[in-house]
Design a protein around this nucleic acid. Structure first.
Length: 524
RNA sequence: UGGGGUGUCGCCAAGCGGUAAGGCACGGGACUUUGACUCCCGCAUUCGUAGGUUCGAAUCCUGCCACCCCAGCCA
């Protein structure tokens, strides 16, 4: 990983460095707080990079903490999958593994402490009325009629909430802050809600669950987190985060720093829509290679190194942005170019018959697995009278700078011979279906004569030995440039209609062609 | 119309009063048994905008404009 003073740094690490220099903290301690309600995608890779990277850059600690305060949406299966993906990406939680739910007892104690201090109260307002009394963006809210209950009554009610005496939604514990605050998050936000639901970690031990705004700062403070990085939409929550830390009288004060989340062109990054793709069968699953999930990218052959490099190069800042897919692809190509063994594959085959090659003869050629890494070895590839080349590598009527094959033209077959196209056999529509070529037997690859220059080199596969396969051409799922904005994940949110979303799907994203693999790839 | 943010090359992004880094993309050239890779070269007299301060501003001040986020008992 990078040193903090290395080539890559960002505004967050600058802030941390200043905190270190000023003595506001001695060891950096960050946390990764995924909610176990889905699969990790490329956007999460940035969050991992920012939080884990900060710890790495300053020799600090990273905690992995599942933010599981809402049993409605969370599952054990996701906590396993998430750990797997984080490890695959190449990160370890050297500070330990935690669950937000294991702090439920402390959260509860702190809630009582707030009640005792007159800083929280139990509110009986139904959700709808509470919403109305909250005011609007421009109009201040109204105090709840339950706001001035006595400490004794609040304590009694809260304990009875915990004891399970009330139904879901009947009451809520609220922070007593300021209903007229211009920041809506400070208008007596809910701290605890009643949810008679069993939790994947705590079972039926609780029927009240703390809200994110209450639980998160507590978790950070208890774990001794020094810097808590999250995305921009939490900026408005920072005053509340700080309020909780102070109201609970923690001696340490973790610092929340926000940055812009990652958006990618032509890529859906909203769990809501990713789920729709899976559930409605547009893709085979969360790990479908077209999915922007880490699992999908893994199946697609993307490497962790390439993804980390990409996230780092995309940068960390506060301006909303949409990074071009081209950068990701560049990073993947760059890394794969250095580590991947070469092999030949023909996706859309065009038959080539070598008229002067002895009938029935098959030669075995030796090709290097990597042009720059001899230590990666060589492989044997069959060469015969009948070959397949890529359809797009041949043109009957080539433009001026066409370097590949055309009638009368010559081309080199990678690692083999130079051939000349003598005749084109076309179908009724004029499409080439087979080429009759002569091979220059005196100029086999590697021999003296091979030094002769020809304009192009093509990959190929022996027709008799190649392994047929059905190739799916995976393309980004979206047609247009923009990323689909993350929408509220509310259960009944129908803001973007389904037709609109489907219309944006890229029809090229799942084209099937009948291709041929080099035999060495058959088992892969 | 309230509050919180952000605006620097097609896309990201440095810059923090001293006269516009870098990457991707793109264009040109060299090299090449993958037109890949690699390698050179080019690519913002200008920093949302209008003023002001200053010897000097993307950086300070003022006004305006644009975009994003916030009214969950989601995170």
């Amino acid at each position: 990983m990078q040193e903090a003073n290395g080539a890559h740094t960002n505004f967050i690490w600058e802030i941390i460095r200043q905190d270190l220099d000023a003595g506001r903290c001695s060891q950096v301690h960050t946390r990764l707080p995924p909610e176990p309600n889905g699969w990790l995608h490329i956007g999460h890779a940035k969050n991992i990079y920012v939080n884990a990277g900060a710890a790495l850059a300053f020799g600090g600690l990273l905690n992995l903490r599942f933010d599981d305060t809402n049993p409605t949406k969370e599952e054990q299966a996701f906590v396993d999958g998430i750990q797997n993906d984080i490890r695959w990406l190449g990160y370890e939680w050297n500070g330990g593994l935690f669950f937000g739910s294991s702090y439920f007892p402390q959260c509860y104690e702190l809630a009582e402490k707030l009640i005792l201090g007159g800083k929280a109260y139990v509110c009986d307002l139904p959700q709808e009325e509470m919403r109305q009394m909250r005011g609007t963006l421009t109009a201040p809210g109204q105090n709840s009629p339950y706001r001035d209950r006595s400490v004794e009554e609040n304590l009694d009610l809260f304990r009875r909430m915990r004891a399970g005496e009330f139904a879901n939604g009947a009451r809520v514990l609220r922070a007593k802050i300021d209903m007229a605050s211009p920041n809506i998050n400070m208008r007596d936000p809910a701290l605890y809600r009643i949810l008679h639901l069993s939790h994947h970690q705590t079972g039926d031990a609780w029927c009240i669950y703390p809200m994110y705004d209450f639980a998160h700062p507590i978790q950070d403070a208890i774990e001794g987190i020094t810097h808590s990085m999250c995305s921009l939409e939490y900026e408005d929550h920072r005053p509340l985060y700080n309020w909780v830390i102070e109201a609970c009288e923690f001696p340490n004060h973790p610092r929340q720093i926000e940055y812009a989340r990652l958006n990618l062109t032509r890529t859906i990054m909203s769990k809501r829509y990713l789920r729709k793709l899976v559930e409605e069968g547009y893709v085979a699953g969360w790990d479908d290679p077209r999915m922007p999930t880490l699992a999908g990218m893994r199946r697609r052959g993307y490497t962790p190194e390439a993804i980390r490099d990409f996230v780092e190069r995309a940068g960390v800042a506060k301006a909303d942005s949409v990074v071009e897919l081209a950068l990701l692809e560049h990073c993947v190509r760059e890394h794969l170019g250095t580590v991947a063994a070469r092999a030949m594959v023909v996706l859309r085959p065009l038959k080539v018959t070598l008229t002067n090659w002895p009938e029935g003869q098959t030669d075995t050629l030796t090709l290097e697995n990597h042009p720059d890494h001899p230590e990666m070895g060589e492989r044997q590839v069959a060469f015969g009278k009948q070959l397949y080349i890529e359809q797009e590598d041949f043109l009957i009527d080539p433009p001026k700078k066409f370097f590949r094959l055309f009638p009368g033209g010559e081309v080199r077959l990678k690692g083999a011979y130079i051939i000349r196209c003598d005749e084109v056999i076309q179908d009724a529509d004029g499409n080439p279906v087979e080429l009759k070529c002569t091979v220059d037997l005196s100029r086999k690859s590697g021999s003296e004569g091979a030094a002769r220059k020809v304009k192009g080199t093509l990959h190929w596969v022996s027709a008799a030995d190649a392994v047929p396969f059905e190739a799916r051409l995976y393309e980004p799922l979206l047609n247009d440039e923009a990323a689909v904005e993350e929408d509220a994940e509310g259960a009944e949110n129908t803001a973007i209609d389904k037709k609109d979303f489907i219309a944006r799907l890229n029809p090229e994203s799942l084209t099937t062609v009948q291709g041929f693999l080099e035999p060495s790839l058959a088992q892969a």
